[in-house]
């Protein structure tokens, strides 16, 4: 029991550190692509600590305070329900507890809490961003869910443990090779999940300056940042488990999540931005069709 608890705590701490570090690396990479020096790799830790120590005197009602907690809760639930390293039972945390559909629901739940909190803040920009974000979420959830269903039906299991275990017979047994179309759909849906361009309409820094967290300040903002970092890592680990055969060692885990994280960073630094209806049209047609192709193939 104690081992289980400490493993969960360590997982959360490690995921937070890794997520913040990845964020710093991504800022640096983006800066280099722009031809700038860019901030330190540790900049996100500094920002987080500074925000945590600032005073806070802004109040917008109960849901406003709950929203970052919703997000962090959702991220932690996803994090502890996915096995980290295959074969090391201690890192399986709570992965016996649910299946992939629960994970998708919890991911949606975190974003929904965030949307409610931002809506409660009453700032018009936050509300616009939330409406755009929910519209976009409803479109990428579709292709992602169909891709997950295709994989689950193909492997005859909805348990995330089972999906990981089915991919342990060498690289060719990874789902990205066994279900190439579904994987392509899921990877295209990964871009809007990470709010990467061309699907960055939610945070749109040009018109609705930073979107949902407009009214959040100091300590609440630091919670929101750590929630985003945790959620990012949780999504990375979920994707590695679903498509890239899980991780057979700690090194493999870090390498795989790092490479997967760099994919939206590199894509987003060279693309302009879709409008909401363009991004919805794209996500409903191309990734959904790709995922459906594999679903039909598996069903037949």
């Amino acid at each position: 029991m104690f081992a289980n608890f400490s493993s969960i705590a360590l997982t959360i701490l490690g995921a937070l550190t890794w997520g913040l570090l990845l964020g710093g690396i991504s800022r640096s990479v983006t800066a280099r692509i722009h031809g700038r020096m860019g901030p330190r790799v540790t900049q996100n830790f500094i920002d987080l600590w500074k925000l945590f120590r600032k005073t806070s005197s802004i109040h917008h009602g109960g849901m406003f305070w709950m929203a970052p907690m919703f997000r962090i809760t959702g991220a932690i639930c996803v994090l502890i329900m996915v096995p980290l390293v295959v074969g090391q039972n201690i890192t399986y945390n709570m992965s016996f507890a649910g299946d992939v559909f629960l994970l998708i629901y919890i991911m949606f739940f975190g974003c929904l809490g965030m949307a409610l909190g931002a809506g409660n803040s009453g700032h018009p920009y936050a509300v616009i961003a939330v409406s755009r974000g929910l519209a976009q979420m409803s479109s990428y959830e579709l292709s992602f869910s169909i891709a997950v269903v295709a994989i689950a039906v193909g492997l005859h299991t909805f348990k995330i443990e089972g999906i990981v275990a089915a991919q342990q017979a060498g690289i060719t047994s990874w789902n990205i090779f066994r279900f190439p179309f579904a994987s392509a759909g899921a990877l295209l849906a990964f871009l809007p999940m990470q709010m990467a361009y061309p699907f960055g309409i939610v945070l749109a820094p040009q018109e609705i300056p930073i979107g949902p967290p407009t009214e959040y300040s100091s300590r609440m903002l630091s919670f929101m940042f750590s929630g985003r970092a945790l959620f990012g890592v949780a999504k990375l680990i979920l994707f590695v488990s679903l498509l890239f055969g899980g991780a057979s060692s700690w090194l493999g885990l870090f390498v795989k999540t790092f490479l997967l994280y760099m994919y939206p960073v590199v894509v987003s630094s060279v693309f302009p931005r879709f409008r909401t209806e363009q991004s919805i049209r794209f996500l409903w047609f191309i990734p959904t069709t790709l995922a459906l192709v594999d679903l039909v193939r598996v069903m037949l």
Binding site: R27, R36, M37, G38, R40, I46, I210, T214, L221
Partner: peptide
């Protein structure tokens, strides 16, 4: 903010709202 002067290397960033600024 441009690549010539690049204030981000000092950790300076622009925030659109006074709530988050220093």
């Amino acid at each position: 903010g441009t690549s010539r002067f690049d204030m981000e290397r000092f950790g300076i960033a622009m925030r659109p709202t006074p709530r988050q600024a220093d």
